[in-house]
Amino acid sequence: MKKRFLKPAEDPLWLRLFLGSVAIAFIAVLLLLPLALVFKEAFANGVSALWTAIKEPDTLASVRLSLIAAGIAVPLNTVFGIAAAWCIAKFDFPGKTFLVTLIDLPFSVSPVVAGLIYVLVFGAQGWFGRSLADHDIHILFAVPGIVLATIFVTFPFVARELIPLMVDQGRDEEEAAATLGATGFQTFLRVTLPNIKWGLLYGVLLCNARALGEFGAVSVVSGHIRGVTNTMPLHVQLLYDNYDYAGAFTVAALLAMLALLTLVFKSLLEWRYADELAAAHRH
């Protein structure tokens, strides 16, 4: 009598096993194998070899450069993100959707194109090329160019996170603060910021990860001068092209660790603060 049939929205066991295996196998081969390989190659010659590779002057220089680029790009883009989200979420004005589309632009542009546009402006044959050379100012093939390219490719991250979040949260609290006599900055610091702090952190996290890992755009403007204008990703390429696989994978492992840390914090934030993050990220 007790014939157990399937509930309507339930898949039969064989299907569950099949789809589950396909999904897991696909993810394992496509995503996990490369990751495992990075660490395996980095540790191939033992931990002390790894340590020596890290302490190489050129490697340390690349780490420094990456940190400088990120250290400038992330705070600037955070300020931008806050400003953009503030005016878009708290006010109505014509051209708002166009503005949002514009902010999304670097997401849909190839990183190489991103680097290209700065070459066209600051390069030897670019708009300002001649006058920059005359004044011996180096933007391209030097740190400023790298910072600019990094800023371009990472500036949407904080804005994209804050805009839907602040739109969702509405204007009521800020309006209340205004009626109670608070200035703009006071309102922002005491009312808005506490409400957006987790979304802000999330956006900064993603912005930072991208800033440290950016390759294409920086590659175009960098000049690849060993020990001078190579960020970590570029240094990985340099080592790899010179057949220093152990060295390349060592730096790669550092970057991979950073990526894993980013994923961990990202998941943590999503799990604990799902409601305070932008609606777009809820899943």
């Binding site: 490369p34 990751l35 294409g216």
Partner: peptide, 18 residues
Amino acid sequence: AVIDLPFALPTAVAGIAL
């Protein structure tokens, strides 16, 4: 969480690994 790996991993790292 692993699904987001290509998002978070620097492209050069993915490049040499692949």
